[in-house]
Design a protein around this nucleic acid. Sequence first.
DNA 1: CCCATCTGAGACACAACTGTCTCATCAGTG
DNA 2: CACTGATGAGACAGTTGTGTCTCAGATGGG
Lengths: 183, 183
Amino acid sequence: MAIDRDSVLNAAVGVLSRQPNAAMDEIARAAGVSRATLHRLFPGRDALVREVGALALRRFAQALDDARIDEGDAVAAVRRLVDAVIPLSQLCAFLTGESKLYEDTGINEAWDRLDARVRALFLRGQQEGAFRIELPAAWLSEAFLDLVAGVGWAVQDGRLAPRDSAHALAELFLGGATRRPAP
Amino acid sequence: MAIDRDSVLNAAVGVLSRQPNAAMDEIARAAGVSRATLHRLFPGRDALVREVGALALRRFAQALDDARIDEGDAVAAVRRLVDAVIPLSQLCAFLTGESKLYEDTGINEAWDRLDARVRALFLRGQQEGAFRIELPAAWLSEAFLDLVAGVGWAVQDGRLAPRDSAHALAELFLGGATRRPAP
DNA sequence: CCCATCTGAGACACAACTGTCTCATCAGTG
DNA sequence: CACTGATGAGACAGTTGTGTCTCAGATGGG
């Protein structure tokens, strides 16, 4: 039976989100395969990283679709987005680390497209009067994604319980992003 | 005249916060010195990174002192902390990236001590009734530092205006961390 | 049982980075 | 002007990771 590519990719995410410059040797060991097999599955390290990045971005885009962020109340949309994105927080941590490391045009463009979709959600929320207009939508998007990555790191290192993470992220972020009911 | 070590360190921060695994060659070029001089100033790459890390941690600790986070109203203390830490956001971005790359015991311990001080501030705020108790103080600290690093990256890449950064950080974070005046 | 296929272990050359060296050049000083 | 000290450029070996290869062993189907 051919070794499961997805399991290898998942193991690679686990290693690379902690150590973005991990060697193929470590990735192979973490995936439970030999270095030779890892090279048989992926043409090289760059290809592996790109594939992990593409996987992460695909799942992220799927999460945005699943959360239906263009529909209904913006605050509710953000809550759906949080729930959809929390399982991907480790992937998000990988992507934030990776985007600092490499200059892969494809990954960066896809990341920008995702960021634009999130930004549009916050812009819509501002236009609806739900989100504070004195905070730039770009900053809200940036901060949201930073916090998702932060959740990924915190959960990975055991500093945050996974079952608390969605609530912690949603409450902290929405508390800061939404307009106060009464000054 | 001996080349200014500090200017080299600052240049190193600029490069390493973007590319944590940048080569000595790139760091030297960014600092405007030759690779030979860089090696004359610092015994090696590890020493350089450690020194940059130590500098960042010292400045961070100094910022905590300057902000007098143990005194007075917790919310006001956080605002002072934001103002003191914003100029160091790039250093914070470096530290976050670096801690994922290396396992330098000294840096990690010092980072944990800083994190504990910040955590104590939020814990105090919760005990005073200013901060929401349903969010773990550890998460507040984690999120705060993630956002500071995020500010560093966003400013560095031109996605956030430096003069807006303190306000953006303080308002978003405090909005999420403080208890709502009335439900 | 035999065979096809896949996997793991190891060897190998190649590339990149590091750390050290030498030497020429340049600036400041007496 | 001569001299001292620091710097830049380049060469060099050593180390580490990569990519490819071969070969032996395991696994599963016919």
